[in-house]
Design a protein around this nucleic acid. Structure first.
Lengths: 182, 182
DNA sequence: TTCTAATCTGGACACGTGTCCAGCGCAACG
DNA sequence: CGTTGCGCTGGACACGTGTCCAGATTAGAA
């Protein structure tokens, strides 16, 4: 397990993930197959399956990496404003990769071990960001309400009941109700 | 298209749906296959596919029928209390069929035409129930917040982050925040 | 009863999924 | 230089999905 060999594995993974994102953008998540991703990455499908447990795993992994790069929000303004900013930062980031967003909603519900691990991390990331925006003196009920409303918006967008671009605007008044705008 | 023939078709559908629910309870949604449902219903798989466009369609159809039977809530008590009651009525009903609940969350995200039609109906049902509980003088923001929080709770339960039994209790303080308990 | 049309059947089809494993090739270490 | 062993290959496997269609069955009309 020298650093050289693990480098080689890491490179293969990166190549697969990059190919996965390209493929996703080009053909969408329905048409994408692990084998087509493997081919694009210049790797056999057996190898792809060594690193990607499933299509779902690929999507969730890509989503997680994409999301982690969403900019943190400034710590200025009213509480409501900070929460709005946090929501907008996340939704903007998500909307930047529509194909990925469309793919991840069903994928997040998968039962693979890898999916489960990642979705906990993603959920935790939301919590951290909202907590930072909310500040210390906030009730659990508000925290929960915010998280549930955000999850709900993701679900509705995933169902096609709203676009990912609309999310922030649709959530704005909702956030105001939950956080309190006075 | 006499009433007799459409009766025959209707009976086949009922038989399939009943078999589907039994199969779902016994083996869970992962192991269930349309063919096994067809066999249980005493029908060929080709026939099953005539009426059920997909596994997702089956689950969503079953869920819709199950949900429609949730009792309506009394029109007494404070607004918050009525909303709580509406939430509890729905969650109790959903929790009564755990296997169905587990199956429907991913299914609801399917892209079949039939799934889409039904999920709009299900969403509309939620809206109607919440609107009845909220009464006339309510802002859209509150309505939206409630709907999103409820959807979010469904999603989280679907992900295994809470049980369906817990939903109502977890939602109670959230509802209080959104509707306002004063 | 006989005819007719709707309904159901059986089974093949093309495709995707995820798993498995014997063996190849290459990079690094001795 | 070998030799070692890790990572990759190719391709078969069992299984589920959803589609299709020629032909058997059935119920009800004439």
């Amino acid at each position: 397990m020298s650093s050289a060999t693990s480098t080689r594995q890491a490179e293969t993974v990166e190549r697969l993930l990059a190919a996965g994102l390209e493929e996703l953008r080009e053909v969408g998540h329905e048409a994408l197959t692990i084998r087509s991703v493997a081919a694009r990455a210049g790797v056999s499908s057996a190898t792809a399956y060594t690193y990607l447990a499933s299509k779902n795993h690929l999507f969730v992994e890509l989503f997680w990496r994409h999301l982690a790069d969403a900019p943190a929000v400034e710590e200025t303004g009213s509480r409501a404003e900070r929460v709005q900013a946090a929501v907008r930062s996340l939704t903007t980031r998500i909307a930047a990769e529509p194909a990925l967003a469309a793919a991840v909603t069903p994928a997040l519900l998968g039962s693979d071990t890898d999916v489960e691990r990642l979705r906990l991390r993603i959920g935790a990331e939301f919590v951290v960001r909202f907590d930072e925006a909310l500040g210390r003196e906030t009730t659990d009920a508000v925290r929960q309400a915010l998280l549930l409303a955000f999850s709900g918006a993701l679900l509705q967008a995933g169902m096609g009941l709203m676009t990912y671009d609309e999310m922030a605007d649709r959530l704005a008044p909702v956030v105001a109700v939950i956080v309190g705008e006075e």
